[in-house]
Design a protein around this nucleic acid. Structure first.
Lengths: 123, 123
DNA sequence: GCTATAATTGAACAATTATTCAACTATCTT
DNA sequence: AAGATAGTTGAATAATTGTTCAATTATAGC
């Protein structure tokens, strides 16, 4: 998001179908819900994080495993895991010094698979 | 993405489980596929675009309708529609001066609904 | 207590992004 | 042909984002 200036937003629309618009507006979910939804998708909208999710869909892994798999640092992975944690996409358990991550629930795998199907049928 | 400097990437990982990592790496999809997937999710990862997708899931709308619904300009909507078009999330048909947009296929609706279910169960 | 290792965190910076504005194309009406 | 309207596009800019580096926390073994 990136609004400019401070002026009030002006709707430069010349013509629209009030019936169509009203009908959709009535069914529109609250901003709060849609924002959470957008943020969930955004959390999946990065190559590194998608790889993390794919990997965790196979099996539980520690931060070191992920860093090695992705060829990056533990720090970078940890930062990205936080994004996924914030959106409740992954969970973790501690075992001594290690922290093992896994997908939070089956929704995530279904979401991932549904997206993959779209991409693979896109050609 | 935002790499800094020019040095070669260094893997600062001290220890990892080679068996686990190798097993996951073997099943990892090609970068190209995962990048498309990430970009698809990224296209859905914005409040304005999520609202557009939600609206189009209800019914076909023209750019003016969308601009009015979202309280923004046709220009802003048009820019965002291009992002969605690029990822084949929406299609359009022209009718005179008007351009009517709709969701490209049922995958999109399922993807959206699956995400919504996750968010609404998140609490 | 001391050292080593796993992971997290905050600051900094380059890259990316969303909206605005202005200019433009295309289509309809007269 | 001229004027009006629907939509697209490019440039500019403020905000956001991902990785790196350095410092820190927490646990294990000696």
């Amino acid at each position: 998001m990136a609004r400019r200036g401070g002026g009030e937003p002006v709707c430069k629309v010349d013509f629209f179908d009030p019936k169509r618009v009203a009908s959709v507006r009535r069914r529109l979910k609250p901003d709060e819900t849609l924002l959470s939804l957008a943020e969930t998708f955004k959390a999946l909208g990065d190559l590194t994080r998608i790889k993390i999710v794919f990997a965790l869909a196979q099996q539980e892994l520690c931060v070191c495993d992920l860093a090695n798999l992705l060829g990056t640092t533990k720090s970078a992975v940890s930062h990205q895991l936080r994004v996924l944690r914030n959106m409740r996409l992954v969970r973790y358990r501690k075992d001594g010094k290690m922290v093992y991550y896994s997908l939070d629930d089956d929704h995530i795998k279904r979401l991932f698979d549904e997206g993959l199907r779209h991409v693979e049928e896109m050609g």
